[in-house]
Amino acid sequence: MFKKLSVLLGVAAGLTMMASAYAADPIKIVFVGKNTGNPYFDSLVQGFVDGCDKLGCEFEFVAPATAEATSQIPFITAQIQRGVDVIATSPNSPDALNQVLDRARAKGILVLSVNGDMTGNEEHRDAAILPTDFEKVGADQVELVGSLIDYEGEIAILSATTEAPDQNKWIVGMNEALANDPKYAKMKLVATVYGDDQPEKSTTEMEALLSTYPNLRGVISPTTVGIAASAQVVQSAGKADTVKVTGLGTPNQMRPFIKDGTVEAFQLWSPYNEGWLASHFAVGVKDGTIKNEVGATFEVPNLGTITINPLNSINTQAGLTTFDASNIDDFNF
């Protein structure tokens, strides 16, 4: 059986040899997303597309159906097989991709972790393109909720999953800010709950928060599913005036809540710029104009001078962008 198969494959390979002879010059970049149907990544992909339009690289976006830890592996192997030059990925797991990414790098493929890092496994990727300095997200969010509640009263956090690495990093930052900055002395964090990034669970958790803490003044939800569910819940309960919801969300997801005043302000960064920067960085490293070394700097149109930070991580912007009624219509993602 094996013989038959290999003969067959041999013939097929012969037939298709000519096709592969063509692909040569432009740098081929592929982005392996977390999963399809995730609106957040539409904008990031657009950044890649525009970047490659300008720089003359080839770009493709692929993604598995589920954001499960292993689902990206066959896609990455397929890209290695396709002979791409750059694999950018938003890893679904901090460690499950280690082996396959090592294989990609052994073949000279530049491996970028985009929008999230492989915390603790940084040696398995070449560089990370992160939206902002994750160390400061927690403090920024506390400041935002504080400004909404006059720095006084009970607040709660509705996060994604208990082990979500980015969210946990931010929550640590929130706790530190609350504990150390005297400005927040009158604010009290009463609960941190997890909605698993599922609308149903997030909604139930948020409703339970409102019921358990009648004096609750503010909720930080640093995840797009969570903040949308929280906003929907306070809107339903008619408590938008007493409980201020904020966190990290996308403008398209939050637009109606900003328009009707349910949510006064929330934050995020620009996923578009991540794709834009990643494409410039990838092409630069590949053609030798950018050195992928800690401390090196390079220029990216519209973003200015970018520095490569320790662990080869790169931030697209310094702080978070705050969205409110005054500017939300300027954004579409």
């Binding site: 399809t36 149907g37 599922q198 949308a228 929907q232």
Partner: peptide, 11 residues
């Protein structure tokens, strides 16, 4: 109606 949006990979 309840969750306010529809997502192909979640709903």
């Amino acid at each position: 109606s309840r969750f306010g949006y529809v997502n192909p990979s979640i709903t």
